[in-house]
Amino acid sequence: MHSPLEPILGTINQIILGKQREVRLALTCLLAQGHLLIEDLPGVGKTTLAQVLARVLGLDCQRIQFTSDLLPADIIGVSVYERDSARFNFHPGPIFSHLVLADEVNRATPKTQSALLEAMGEQQVTAEGQTRALPQPFFVIATQNPSSQIGTYALPESQLDRFLMRLTLGYPNRLAERALLAGEDRRDLIAALPAQANADLLLGWQQAVRRVHGAPALIDYVQALAEQSRSCGLFESGLSPRAALGLLHAARAWAYLEGNDKVIPEHVQAVFPGVATHRLRPRDALSGAPAGAALHELMASVPIR
């Protein structure tokens, strides 16, 4: 049982060293038609990840560096008067691409953020009274820099809910870093990569993910997880129904990526931290316990019958 995406994963892992799990989650998020939020320090390979994903999957990729003076029009595009044709022509912004890397999304003003988030939610943008569909597939990787919070507008929880997953890449381990330092320039490597898929193929995979079987017993488990998150008292608020739906869908994509035609609890557990981490704020956040520990405690407390 091997998924057609196995070679793609292999290729990406040649570029992003020592981050198999995160790469797999990122691809899962893409297959589940969700958007990804990466919260990490600069220089750990966020951009590289986006670029390699786009390259290998045969998608076009745009990077938007969010700054405090970024305006919605800078993302969506503007209409410019052209003298030759004597009328306004719409110049699509960087959001009109398959894969958008929104770097340091928390640096932009809420107005600009919401323009991006709306596009993510609706899969379309409205500019100057005209609604324009975004290319399909459409996948946003947004990054946040957690270290310097001065002059940033942290995404509110309601907006965070729009991201299917939040990941941290973290520092590579010793071996991976060694290989990175000893190896060739990543940018050259990416440029040399052949495209192993295209937009249509990816759309087909996304459709196939929807058909992965979720048995009643599994749905019971997902429901139990959501209920436990609401009632266990570890978190300020529990998982929303949208989150539960996202969890199930992400688990489907994970199962598909593993080459399975059905979801089992292990798939749910694999994606659960990614899906839940930005939606559940631990109640005793100030005591310094990491959010991941609470999530694992939650998972351990929900029995698989």
Binding site: I264, P265, Q269, M299, A300, S301, V302, P303, I304
Partner: peptide, 9 residues
Amino acid sequence: RRAAEGPRD
């Protein structure tokens, strides 16, 4: 088997 351990694991 731990309570939250899936069948495959």
